[in-house]
């Protein structure tokens, strides 16, 4: 009866979403074609011409290609390491009760609240003693460690919503602890894994401060550092910055779209809850 009304409402809401979401990226895209004067003459005006000189400028001013490759490697490996370490941990904490559990959860939560400004000096000293300064490995370890809580909280709530009866059934069939985790639990948690993975990837992709403090050369530096090359002491080259943003934003978007597709696929395997 009110089906039409409600679908009208749904699309009105969706159009709002599109407007507020595509607005920024469209604005950045337009900005990447403007001159520096045009950026400041009006926030809306279209660029007077569509030339790609800002893109050339983006490559000239910063080692963006090299840093881009570094970013891909660092973020991909970070996500993998983080998942490998946190998933088993989150599973045990979701399923078993033991004395220190509350304390451990609180400690994990506190990681999210740690300001990098405070940690810069001790972490710098720590990585120096491991000879991991200015290496991708160093950055990966730090990012993976700081990603523990987000992955933990997301996975834990997924594990919690999987009925225990499934494990009991597996156990009766003779499956051991590890096998149950790998063959029964993980496949059912693909949506959670992918979601946690995306968040991990994105937060490492945009991280600036540790990348600045812990690296010094072209071998380990990531895209956010490259973006700083367009900012000067007295004036900023925003058109080149926007061009660089457009160039470097595609992979995270592609990864997001692709991984969401995976979520849908995994779900067709059959629902478990309710």
């Amino acid at each position: 009866m009110n089906g039409k009304l409600s679908s009208g409402f749904v699309y009105a809401a969706l159009i709002c979403i599109v407007l507020i979401s595509l607005g920024p990226i469209f604005w950045v895209l337009l900005g990447s074609f403007k001159t520096r004067g045009e950026i400041y003459s009006s926030a809306f005006a279209l660029p007077s011409q569509f030339n790609f000189s800002n893109y050339a400028e983006a490559f000239r001013l910063a080692p963006i290609g090299k840093f881009f490759v570094n970013s891909l490697i660092v973020c991909a490996v970070t996500t993998a390491v983080n998942f490998a370490v946190v998933a088993p941990f989150a599973y045990v904490l979701a399923r078993y009760h033991f004395g220190m559990k509350k304390l451990i959860v609180a400690a994990i939560a506190s990681v999210m609240l740690l300001p990098s400004q405070s940690l810069a000096v001790p972490i710098f000293t720590l990585l120096r003693s491991f000879h991991l300064l200015d290496t991708k490995t160093g950055l990966i370890l730090i990012y993976a460690a700081f990603g523990i809580p987000i992955t933990f909280f997301i996975l834990r709530s997924f594990f919690l919503s999987i009925p225990k009866s499934l494990e009991e059934a597996a156990s009766i069939d003779g499956a051991g602890f590890a096998v149950t985790f790998l063959k029964v639990i993980l496949p059912l948690s693909v949506p959670g894994m992918v979601t946690a993975g995306i968040l991990q990837f994105l937060s490492s992709w945009n991280e600036f401060f540790f990348a600045l403090v812990l690296t010094s050369g072209d071998q380990a530096r990531t895209v956010p550092i490259a973006l700083s090359y367009y900012l000067g002491t007295f004036s900023n080259n925003y058109p080149a910055l926007f061009a660089a943003v457009i160039l470097t934003i595609l992979p995270p978007i592609a990864i997001f779209v692709f991984s969401q597709e995976k979520v849908v696929e995994s779900l067709t395997a059959g629902a478990v809850k309710g």
Partner: peptide, 20 residues
């Protein structure tokens, strides 16, 4: 088109803050 909307809504969270 829900997959499209889902992807679109995510984009602002991906744009680096120096730009947005």
């Amino acid at each position: 088109g829900w997959k499209f909307f889902r992807a679109v809504y995510m984009i602002p969270s991906i744009i680096p803050t120096v730009a947005s």
